[in-house]
């Protein structure tokens, strides 16, 4: 009973919050709604008994990704509304609508069929993080490593991009020299 109430509450809230994210013209509202929606998604994981994934959702999406997002937003004036420029409403509507219909069909396809199978049998005796770890390091080892390499590449790229002028200190150089390095 509790689970049902929780599910419907969280569902309504999640959909509502993501609607706000899409429809609101205020950056701050959109961002807050996105963060709240992300944290509510972890509620589904908790209800399904996947505690570990729920917490990972909380830490990674709410904690890190969203905060970086917010950090980016900080360069806008968040108290003003954004004027959107839609040149052709019909094209946007058709593309977005067809993608939405397609995704709905793909994800609702298994519902009518009885032949849904679990690809990986969960270890019965293992606790939640252990089960995740077992699957991750046996069946999905290659994608896991590929993802790791990709993140490493992204990290190195980020360091190279940011580290070009790392030796120049903005505080201890003269003003004209700073202008010189900018090439003005």
């Amino acid at each position: 009973m509790f689970e049902l109430i929780a599910f419907y509450t969280i569902s309504v809230l999640t959909i509502g919050l993501f609607l706000v994210t899409v429809l609101s013209k205020n950056v701050l509202y959109a961002m807050t709604a996105l963060a709240a929606g992300m944290s509510l998604i972890s509620g589904y994981f908790f209800m399904l008994g996947a505690d570990f994934l729920g917490v990972v959702q909380l830490i990674v999406y709410v904690g890190a990704v969203m905060a970086l997002y917010a950090f980016g937003m900080m360069f806008f004036d968040v108290t003003r509304d954004i004027k959107e420029k839609n040149t052709n409403g019909a094209v946007v509507f058709i593309i977005a609508g067809s993608v939405a219909v397609m995704l709905t069909m793909i994800f609702s396809m298994p519902l009518g069929i009885n032949s849904i199978m679990t690809l990986v049998q969960p270890e019965v005796n293992a606790t939640n993080p252990e089960a995740v770890g077992l699957v991750l390091f046996t069946k999905y080892l290659v994608p896991f490593e590929v993802a790791a390499v990709m993140l490493l590449v992204a990290m190195i790229g980020g360091i190279i991009l940011a580290g070009k002028k790392m030796d120049d200190s903005l505080t201890s150089t003269e003003d004209d020299k700073i202008i010189d390095t900018e090439g003005l």
Partner: peptide
């Protein structure tokens, strides 16, 4: 919950929204 330590750290991480949004909203 059997992942208590991660949950506590994650929730404290989510707590960063309070100062973040407060600072951004107050103009």
């Amino acid at each position: 919950i059997n992942i208590g330590i991660l949950f506590v750290l994650g929730m404290m991480a989510a707590g960063l929204y309070a100062p973040l949004l407060a600072g951004m909203a107050q103009a």
